[in-house]
Each structure stands twice: as C-alpha cells, then as structure tokens.
Design a protein around this nucleic acid. Structure first.
Lengths: 257, 257
DNA sequence: TCAAAAGTGTTATAAATACACCCATGC
DNA sequence: GCATGGGTGTATTTATAACACTTTTGA
C-alpha cells in the first residue's frame, strides 16, 4: 500500500518539468453547513500533517484554471473559483524539509531538488453550497475532512495563515459580492441565513432587526414552510431572488469615515 | 547613446539567472495632486511604448521587497508598498514579441529565451503624497511621467488592465484602510479632501454634507487658514488626527444588502 | 459691488438599534 | 402548560440627502 502510493506520487510529480517552477496555488474552500463555516483540509499519503489543497500550474494553463483543477484533483470538488485572496512569497518560503516524503528521500533527486526550491503561492478561495457528507481525496492524499474555520490554527506549513487571510477577504466581500448565491441552497430560512452572516462577520446580530432588514431589501421570495421536524415553531422557507440580490449589491458605496 | 543603453540593458538583465523565472511584479502608484488621481508610467529605452514599472524577483528576496526595489529602480520613488491588487496569469501571457528590444534580437539568445517565456505577474499598489515635479527613471528607461488614471487606457501589454484593477481595489479600500494618511500632506483643506474622495469614488459629493460628516467624525484638527492666494474666501487648514482616524476605520462593518 | 469658492444651517427622509410582545410546535 | 425558537411591531436615535443661506476674498 505504502509502496503503491509512493509510486503514484512519483508518477504524479515526475512531470514537474511541465509545471511553472517555484510557483504554487493554494485553495481555501468555504462551506456553511447551517451552523458553522467550514473549510476542507487534506492529508498527504506520506505525512501526518494536514494542509489545504495545493499544487502547481502547467506551462500552458491559466492560473485560474489551475486552481480549479487542483481543487478537483485533491478533493473531487468541481467548483468555479470565485477569487484570489493574496499571493505569498517570503524569501524563505520552502517547505520540503517539513514533508517527510521529501525529507526521507524516497523520491528521485531531481524531483527533490525541484520541490526544495523557494515557492511563491497564489491563494484562491471559493464557496461550496452542496455538501457531500464525506470528502473524497485524490491519489496523493490519504484523508480529507471538513473543519470549522475557527479550528484551523494547527495546519502545517503556512496554511493556517492562508486560511486566516482568506477568511478576512471573505468577510470584507460579504457586502459587495454575491456570496449568498454560492453559500445558500435553493431554499432556506431566515434564521439559517442569519447564522451564516454571524459566522462570516463573527459577531451576533439582533434577530428582529436582521429579519426586518433582509425582508425590506426585497431579495427573498417566500416559497412555503419548512417541513423539517422542529421542537418549536416551523420557520418559513425562502429562495433568493437572484436579479434583485445582484442589483442590491451594486449601490452600497457609502463614504464612511 | 543607443549603444550604451543597449549595453546597460544587457548588463541589467544578464543576471536573469538570479531571478525567479516566469514571475514578474508590477507596481501601480497613486498620487493625488490636489485635482486628479495620477499614476506614474515609464518608457523603456528601446521602445516607444508606455508601461507601469515592473520587474523580477531575486531568488533570495521577499516579493514585497522586490516590489519596493523595482519601483525605486525605475522611478527613484522610495515608498513603502501598501498592498497587492491581484495576480495575473493567463496561459498566453508573454510579451517579448511586443517589445522591440527583444523582437529585433539585439540581446543574447539566452536572455531572449528567458524573457520570451510565459510570465505570471503580481500586482502591487501604493500611494505617494509628496510629489516630485518630474519623474526620474532608472537606466533602462528613457522617460517617465505622471498621467491621470482616467487616461491610462492606451498603455502597452496588459498594463491598462492592471491600472484599472488597482483602481477598483483602491476604491473599495477607501472606507476600510487608512489611505488618507498616505494621500494627504501634513495639512490640507476640506475642499481638497473632497476632491480626493470624488476622484477615488468617481462621483460628485455634496459640499455641505461632506464637510458636515467629516467634521462630525472628529478626525481633523484645525491648524490655521490657508495663506495661498485665492480668488475667493481662503479655506481653513486642517491636519489629520491619526489616532482618531485609525479608530474610525475599524467600526464600519455594516450589514448592507 | 459682483463673482467665486468657502463655510454654515435647516429640514425631510431613511436606516440602525434596542427592545417588547405574540405564535406554533414538541414534550 | 411551558420551554423553545420563529415571527412581528414600535419607538428612539442616528445617518443620509437636498438645498438654502451667509462669509470672505480678488478683481
């Protein structure tokens, strides 16, 4: 088993000459499960560390396409990429020594040399609204799971920083970009939506005021009543009026000092 | 003269082995001259094109440091970098054929091969508040000048796009980042400040309301009256209260849908 | 004394905030 | 019937926006 996965790793990385050198991509994918904001992390076959999905860019490939491909290869999540949150390139950013597969030299030396270089990484983020129960991973990874963004401070390499930076950008874009279209399922309730806002903004919001404002903004259409078993009054189901939602985003440039 | 500058170019680029390959940096520097928002552009010695400052990253250099160094080498502007506005990497992003110095093969072939590769570029922006009357340039450039950001749609390569993207980011950060500290001189008038806001937001603002709100926010300290010759009532001079300004920026996260 | 630009005040409307109160369900 | 969470209304404060009026200067 271990032998096979080592071979798989060699096969996968041995076309490294087709990649742009010293440049990598990392992806932070957000999901809201109704309660908390989560991101997927994966575990390489040769290591016990947890990292966010990441990889390299083929010479003839757009960097945005690379992000989408890498995400799919490592998590089987097929998702349009929404944006970048930053590019990171400290002079000493090389991590080969922290990866046991490379540290223990089970790979050809030319690959080790290639991967041991200093890398600049481009951070991409996106949002997943349908949630597979388990996270499948590609051949180079042995495990994948969803974790609360609040519990990502023990990731390997500089990946805790990357998640934290992606989260900041997400928060600043909640007001100006159509994130709800990506986060929410076709129908949802107002209390669910409020929990998403509270998770992203990381602060409590008054129930009554939230409901009042979101209804006045006229971006929701009532579609019925939740049929899920509740231990209290069943909430009303809404869907997002895409056109009105998109319109409401553009006209929010205030002065604010 | 032309011979010398060709030699200078060869000398400058021949240490290309010390650079990270296929990765470049571009800088958009904003300045407000009291009337309009401007950016510096430069003209390479061998070409008639105008571009924004740009260059490459040394192997042992942070990418942020590279941005600062490149800016200084090409414009003699010594300025802390404020941030990135994006990283651009379409698969066909290679521009050697558009640069006559490379197109006409006056350079060694290994340099031409190196520069002819596909490049990913990291976009950096910053803000200059002191304004040298002329723009000096480094040895690889024959001209430099400040232009209105509204007149940057004829730059070479993809640099018009880069300026446009940097400008978008600037606008979205006016409310949340301390841009005024960088833009404004130690003392200024409220009408001047209003012109800056109008230039960045690209829309007119009511005089009375602007003054009222900026004064109520309590970030300005009166320091006297302008002594410049005016053809009307002389405006009051203010300075920015840095502490109060920084405080006022943090507490502006509204819901806004 | 007039034009030009700076500085001030008034009013109407809309938004943000803090609550109190009622409703539907499961146990 | 009562705990739980969903849904609604109201009153206060604050922000936004439109616009009229006054002041100071140079010509």
């Amino acid at each position: 088993m271990t032998k096979f996965t080592q071979e798989a790793m060699v096969a996968m990385l041995s076309d490294f000459k087709r990649f742009i050198p010293q440049l990598s991509i990392n992806c932070v994918i957000f999901r809201f499960n109704g309660q908390e904001l989560q991101v997927p992390i994966v575990q390489p076959i040769q290591d016990e560390i947890w990292v966010i999905p990441g990889g390299f860019v083929y010479q003839d490939e757009d960097i945005d396409d690379a992000a989408k491909r890498i995400l799919y290869e490592q998590t089987q999540i097929d998702l349009p990429i929404l944006g970048q949150f930053g590019t990171y390139g400290p002079a000493d950013r090389n991590f080969a020594s922290e990866l046991s597969a490379f540290k223990n030299s089970i790979l050809p030396s030319d690959i080790i040399d290639w991967i041991s270089q200093r890398f600049v990484t481009i951070g991409y983020y996106s949002i997943l609204n349908r949630q597979p129960v388990d996270l499948k991973t590609g051949p180079l990874f042995k495990n994948g799971r969803w974790v609360n963004v609040k519990e990502t401070d023990t990731l390997a390499l500089d990946h805790s920083l990357l998640v934290s930076e992606a989260r900041k950008v997400l928060g600043s874009e909640l007001l100006s970009k159509p994130l709800l279209l990506s986060f929410m399922p076709p129908t949802f309730t107002i209390p669910e939506l409020q929990k998403l806002y509270e998770a992203i903004l990381d602060r409590p919001i008054d129930r009554g005021n939230f409901r009042q404002r979101i209804l006045k903004s006229d971006i929701l259409t009532k579609v019925g009543v939740s049929k899920e078993k509740t231990k209290s009054r069943p909430p009303i189901l809404y869907s997002l009026d895409e056109q009105r939602y998109l319109n409401s985003l553009t006209q929010n440039i205030k002065l604010g000092f």
